[in-house]
Design a protein around this nucleic acid. Structure first.
Length: 290
DNA sequence: AGCCAGGCCCATT
DNA sequence: AATGGGCATGGC
């Protein structure tokens, strides 16, 4: 017998913004491990007492102390947005708790937040992610940043588009990009010569933006969905990768075989909250607990 | 050792 | 429009 768990909405989160520090009292859904390890970000480190995460040319150090979160960073406005601190995750989780599996996934990943990553960094990161594993994606992105990013004093920024577009296939190969190296060179050449591409994406609805993204070499439907979710904050998407494929077959006992159809199945189920649902399910499945 | 990983490209049908 | 082979490379 399964017991449904429902979440009571308690919106007592207090956020204090200072120039280089964010203090959150009674955080609504914020757990460092869940946020950083759910597969949406690759440049981070988790230590025993704290963690840090890099985005674009920014760096944040995060400490969790019981009911308080303290974020020391170079730009608190950037990270207030980055950590999506205006969104009520309790309400989202309550709406997504439609069956026992979702309840379990939400409980397991209760501290997840969907980060608002830098669009350019997200595009490059998820082209590299295709048919790859997270440990290697992390190494590759760190290599690229440490070789072509700016030394920010203690960490390296993600390279600017002009710098990265100068790199050749050999560089990306040496970074471990494999056969994706040629995709990157091709896509970077497009992006560097069309800076309006980014504004075009930001001013498009989900399906229009998806079409623009899939015109880039190395971006198919799944990678596009990840860029839409993590780089453009579109939550009416559902990236179907090999893990979600397993969730569908093993835990939803579905009979569809094409990823596009599985995507539609989940979007019909979760609507505008599909992106959040996907993260809870992905993180739960990868934990090997189901 | 051998399968797998946040799939995509491209030729063929 | 749909299908399927090929693909760099390291993690586990």
């Amino acid at each position: 017998m399964s017991v449904f768990k429902f979440y009571i909405i308690i919106n007592a989160m207090e956020v204090l913004l200072e120039r280089n520090k964010i203090t959150i009292n009674n955080p609504d859904s914020f757990r460092i491990k869940d946020i950083l390890e759910c597969g949406q970000v690759f440049r981070y480190n988790i230590f025993s007492t704290h963690a840090n995460v890099l985005s674009k040319n920014h760096c944040a150090d995060i400490v969790q102390d019981k009911n308080d979160i303290i974020i020391n960073c170079d730009d608190s406005d950037y990270f207030h947005n980055y950590f999506d601190l205006n969104t009520d995750y309790q309400a989202i989780k309550q709406q997504l708790a439609v069956n026992p599996l979702m309840c379990s996934a939400i409980e397991f990943g209760q501290g997840i937040r969907i980060l608002k990553g830098d669009l350019f960094e997200i595009i490059i990161s998820f082209i590299i992610s295709a048919n790859n594993n997270i440990a290697r994606i992390k190494k590759t992105l760190n290599f690229i940043s440490e070789h072509l990013g700016n030394d920010m004093g203690g960490y390296y920024s993600f390279p600017d588009i002009d710098v990265l577009a100068q790199a050749d296939e050999g560089f990306f190969a040496s970074a471990g990009c494999g056969y994706r190296s040629s995709y990157l060179v091709h896509t970077l050449n497009i992006l560097k010569n069309d800076i309006s591409f980014f504004d075009g994406l930001k001013n498009s609805d989900t399906s229009q933006a998806a079409s623009k993204l899939m015109s880039l070499k190395g971006v198919g439907e799944k990678v596009a969905d990840c860029i839409l979710l993590f780089g453009l904050s579109k939550t009416d998407v559902f990236p179907v990768d090999t893990w979600i494929n397993k969730v569908y077959k093993e835990n939803f006992e579905g009979t569809l075989s094409k990823r596009k159809d599985i995507r539609t199945f989940f979007i019909d189920l979760f609507g505008n909250l599909s992106g959040y649902a996907q993260q809870y399910l992905f993180y739960y499945k990868r934990s090997n607990k189901i």
